[in-house]
């Protein structure tokens, strides 16, 4: 029985680890400035935790086999209540490992969340509602117009869905889109809002996720470094259409972005 345990536990450990090492299913290629740092921290954590995981499982299987009861001829078990020095050693080692690992990631978290977007970042307001995303650009005046919940009507789409108040002068030049178009290599400041329940704005390629909470306007930022289309999905249970609530971030060159914005402006 001990041998079977050893074989099964070791096999599970090795097969389980193989798919991690081989990266058979892995994060998508990073397309934002933060991705490299986050991915590096993933690797560090995997190496350290993977080491602990493999060591503990191998030891468990090994002990199960080695110290099995072999009948009458077998060694009696050792009468020992433990070892305080060993206890202290592994407590301290674990503290250093766990807390150190966390502190090592502080600078990335700080740049992602402690620091506000720099002045001159491209502002995009992201609004979640059951079950769609809308993106709003302030237009030439740099100001978002007022929105009124009473005016919301999702069937109108665009400005109607957001409840944009057309009497507010600041709202005249607001551009509303169902696709998030952003320029490459510019910092994007997103202002996350929700109309009804909590949603979460998740763009795996950007290594970006943040809940959108009704009653809050959450300011966050990221910097795309690759052009292309990247999918958005809702990552917080928001109702029966949760699985369908997805969208696209279209990262284009800066001239293309300006062109697109001007064209949308002209349509109004």
């Amino acid at each position: 029985m001990g041998l079977v345990l050893l074989v099964v536990i070791w096999l599970i450990t090795l097969i389980g680890s193989y798919f991690i090492v081989a990266k058979t299913w892995w994060l998508p290629v990073g397309a934002s400035a933060a991705a490299a740092g986050i991915d590096h921290h993933f690797t560090v954590t995997y190496i350290l935790m993977g080491g602990v995981f493999i060591a503990a499982q191998l030891a468990l299987g090994w002990f199960a086999w080695k110290y099995r009861d072999r009948g009458t001829g077998s060694q009696p078990a050792q009468y020992s209540h433990g070892n305080t020095t060993l206890e202290a050693v592994w407590t301290i080692l674990t503290i250093i490992l766990f807390i150190g690992l966390n502190l090592a990631s502080k600078s990335i978290w700080a740049s992602e969340r402690f620091d506000a977007a720099k002045p001159g970042a491209v502002q995009v307001e992201v609004t979640g509602m059951q079950f769609a995303w809308y993106f709003r650009y302030a237009g030439p005046d740099g100001k978002f117009g007022a929105t009124k919940p009473e005016l919301e009507d999702a069937s109108l789409g665009g400005a109607g869905a957001l409840g944009l108040d057309s009497t507010d002068p600041a709202s005249k030049d607001d551009v509303i889109s169902g696709v998030m178009v952003v320029p490459v290599n510019r910092e994007i400041e997103v202002i996350l809002r929700s109309h009804d329940v909590i949603h979460s704005f998740f763009v795996p390629a950007m290594r970006f996720k943040q809940d959108t909470v009704p009653g809050l306007a959450i300011h966050m930022h990221f910097t795309p470094i690759q052009t292309g289309d990247f999918e958005i999905a809702c990552a917080e249970l928001c109702g029966l259409g949760h699985y369908k609530m997805h969208g696209i971030v279209k990262v284009v060159s800066e001239p293309e972005f300006n062109q697109w914005l001007a064209a949308r402006e002209a349509e109004k």
């Binding site: 978002f144 007022a146 929105t147 009124k148 409840g163 809050l216």
Partner: peptide, 8 residues
């Protein structure tokens, strides 16, 4: 405080 969407 919470956000009043009318006035931002």
């Amino acid at each position: 405080p919470t956000l009043d969407p009318r006035t931002n």
